[in-house]
Amino acid sequence: MYSQQQGQQQQHAGGVMQDKDMLFTILTDLKRTVGEYTTATTEAACPMVRQMFMELQNHSLRMQGDLYNFMQQNNMYTKPQPALKQAIDKQIQQVQQNHQQMDQFVQQQLNGGGQSLSFLAHTQAQATQHTNSGKNPYYM
């Protein structure tokens, strides 16, 4: 049981919550719809239908982004916690290991490791630049 004053406060808080809840429901459905448009695009055989689904997907994605921005600006959506640097470092390390295995696999498949794969070297150069490690040139 609430006193009248508490009841009014509840009602007010309820009003703010309502907007947030309603917009959150719309946001969730927009996300689902974007996903379905993506699937529909990949499944379309008629070029016109494919084109339509692509446009609808693009447009829905833009609306979802606009709604998300609105909610965040109005404190209706808590910004996700940032990932810690250690977690990103670990991922980069993992990617580099996988990349090495992938390169070895590709080289084995394509030419038994004889020829250098310049396009892979280029990709690796970019990756190295991004991670700023400056070493680990594991093929060459």
Partner: peptide
């Protein structure tokens, strides 16, 4: 296609 019709209908 039947699939396209279903996707349009779901959409």
């Amino acid at each position: 296609s039947g699939k396209e019709l279903d996707y349009i209908s779901d959409s």
